[in-house]
């Protein structure tokens, strides 16, 4: 598959001392991509360079075959951008704002109005689109920001902390929208420090820390199985530990037991031990690493 984004040796320093990006190199395929890092990790700087709003000290960025350094305007016609902060004129209706921004993105006036209506409908603001934005809740403002990013049918949308300030329901709905964009053929780079959001939403992950690449790849490849199963015997973990004597098992606070395994024979042996001890087997689940584990492990490796 052709690369959506190719970044090579990207470095950006502010005031000659603060290194926001440090020799960042990554290649990404089209899809829903999570850009993960703590606050100040360089995510926003990376977005600004993608949009051609900041020039890097060195390195190249190619979006959909176009070099940002050589043709930033050409790149911007392919991008949509949703900043983290409030950024919409509050004294205008969502329909007017999205339509205006669609026109500025290059849409003819009539098409801009039609697409503004379509994308506001898509993000769930169809009934509120003629209301002034100043009366919108945080969730509605986030949706309106997403709508303006989509209005010109971009190939790639850059979302900076799209779930910031949302309640659990709003966060769930926003992530659902982001997932849907992938099914519409729109690639997404979602910058966030919430690893759970990325794990449940993105098919690719890029992790950066202090401007340096920590890890990147397909989400399922990063979330490998750990070789540990968790056994739930309805709280009778102590009995299970006794039944598994000789195995390296650990009793957890919730009464379940984690047991290292190497293959199916080990699983059969655990099930047999539970049955022999007369314990109820409520669950036997293979433990997978989370993105937190990947981030922390690679971060620790980078520090050594």
């Amino acid at each position: 598959m052709a690369a959506l984004l190719e970044v090579d040796d990207l470095t950006k320093t502010y005031d000659g001392t603060v290194r926001a990006l440090d020799s960042l190199a990554v290649s990404l395929e089209p899809g829903v991509i999570g850009l993960v890092g703590a606050n100040g990790a360089g995510k926003s700087t990376f977005f600004r360079i993608l949009l051609g709003l900041t020039r890097p000290d060195s390195g190249t960025v190619v979006v959909d075959g176009i070099d940002v350094g050589l043709d930033p305007i050409g790149v911007r016609t392919r991008l949509g951008y949703m900043p983290e902060h409030d950024c919409l004129p509050t004294d205008q209706s969502a329909a007017d704002v999205v339509s205006m921004l669609g026109e500025i993105a290059g849409l003819p006036a009539r098409a801009a109005r039609q697409r503004a209506s379509d994308v506001l409908d898509l993000v769930g603001l169809d009934e509120a689109r003629f209301r002034p934005i100043e009366g919108f809740s945080t969730g509605m403002r986030q949706r309106a920001k997403l709508a303006q990013a989509l209005v010109a049918d971009p190939k790639l949308v850059l979302l900076d902390e799209p779930t910031a300030g949302l309640d659990p329901q709003g966060r769930h709905e926003m992530l659902d929208l982001v997932r849907r964009l992938g099914t519409f053929g729109i690639s997404v780079i979602m910058a966030t420090h919430l690893l759970d959001d990325v794990q449940t939403t993105c098919d690719q992950v890029v992790m950066i820390d202090a401007g340096r690449l920590v890890a990147s790849g397909r989400t399922e490849e990063l979330l490998h199985t750990t070789g540990v199963v968790r056994v739930d015997t309805a709280g009778r973990g102590t009995d299970l530990l006794a039944a598994l004597a000789g195995r390296e098992a650990t009793l957890l606070a919730d009464g379940t037991v984690e047991v290292p395994v190497t293959g199916d024979d080990d699983l059969d042996a655990i099930v047999a031990a539970v049955a022999d001890a007369g314990l109820p087997l409520h669950g036997l689940t293979s433990q997978r690493s989370s993105l937190d584990d990947v981030f922390l492990a690679d971060h620790a490796a980078g520090l050594t």
């Binding site: 951008y81 409030d86 950024c87």
Partner: peptide
């Protein structure tokens, strides 16, 4: 209203 980043992303 910090609209400039939206305008200049176009």
């Amino acid at each position: 209203n910090r609209v400039l980043p939206l305008l200049f992303s176009r």
